[in-house]
């Protein structure tokens, strides 16, 4: 592993917020699985965590970390290292630690209480969402030097993906209720990483609801191996595109 990533990792592992986050995930997940008498309900609680807490903590922690590392980044930039490598290494370090926190906190009870396939899916989604929102944090942190502004943008982006986007979808659904828009809607959900993760997990979890008239169309797309692969690919794009944009900006930034 590359040196910068290692240094970022050792730095974060000592971070109190990170420890608290892991503990919080663990408390939520364990209580979800032990208090509810069926693992289905536990999984649903976990789903809510993945859809709300994980993106929020990922985006906030990463944004603040980037701002707090500005000196470190400055120090590195004066060294004979490619700028791209610096940015990518810090991103890797943050992603790994957030993903690890999720796996340690939520993954362990999941592994014990859910089936192995479910564990793979939910843990995979949790990791992908963590990484995607880390990338989104990089995107919002690079565009302004002002820490408060950067954090504000991050929180707004989180609010947008967690809440406003769905409101927008609902609005569109009612605006175009007279048209056959199911297929278009499948495409539109791809515009939010949280929705993508939610639908992918729901299709495995709560099939009853997703079946029926609309469900059939989603099942047709998301339920097939191809649709699943495309969705995962889209989630990866949600990591790749914000990060690529921030990388481009970082390479052309004065420090």
């Amino acid at each position: 592993m590359n040196r910068i990533t290692q240094f970022v990792l050792t730095d974060i592992f000592r971070n109190k917020i990170m420890i608290a986050y892991t503990a919080l995930l663990a408390v939520f997940s364990w209580s979800a699985f032990t208090l509810e008498n069926n693992s289905q309900k536990g999984l649903l609680t976990l789903l809510n965590i993945i859809l709300l807490t994980v993106p929020l903590v990922s985006v906030l922690f990463s944004t603040i970390y980037i701002y707090n590392s500005s000196e470190f980044i400055e120090l590195l930039v004066s060294q004979p290292i490619k700028r791209g490598k610096i940015w990518f290494s810090i991103f890797t370090g943050l992603s790994i630690s957030l993903a690890l926190a999720f796996l340690l906190g939520a993954g362990v009870p999941l592994l014990l209480y859910a089936s192995i396939g479910m564990f793979g899916l939910v843990a995979g989604m949790g990791v992908l969402v963590s990484v995607a929102f880390t990338a989104i944090a990089f995107f919002s942190a690079i565009f302004t030097r002002d820490k408060a502004k950067g954090i504000g943008i991050s929180v707004l982006l989180w609010l947008y993906f967690a809440l406003l986007f769905d409101g927008l979808v609902l609005f569109l659904l009612f605006q175009f209720a007279d048209y056959p828009i199911e297929n278009a809607m499948v495409f539109i959900t791809a515009l939010s990483p949280i929705d993508l993760a939610r639908i992918l997990i729901l299709l495995q979890l709560d099939i009853s609801a997703m079946m029926g008239y609309t469900g059939a169309i989603f099942k047709q797309f998301f339920g097939t191996a191809l649709g699943f692969s495309i969705s995962v690919l889209l989630l990866c794009l949600w990591t790749a595109i914000p990060f690529a944009l921030s990388l481009y900006r970082f390479q052309h930034k004065d420090l």
């Binding site: 240094f7 730095d11 500005s70 000196e71 470190f72 120090l75």
Partner: peptide, 14 residues
């Protein structure tokens, strides 16, 4: 190049 910045700032936890 050896560079010494005006105000050297380093990661707090290191």
């Amino acid at each position: 190049i050896g560079y010494m910045p005006q105000i050297g700032r380093y990661p707090d936890n290191m």
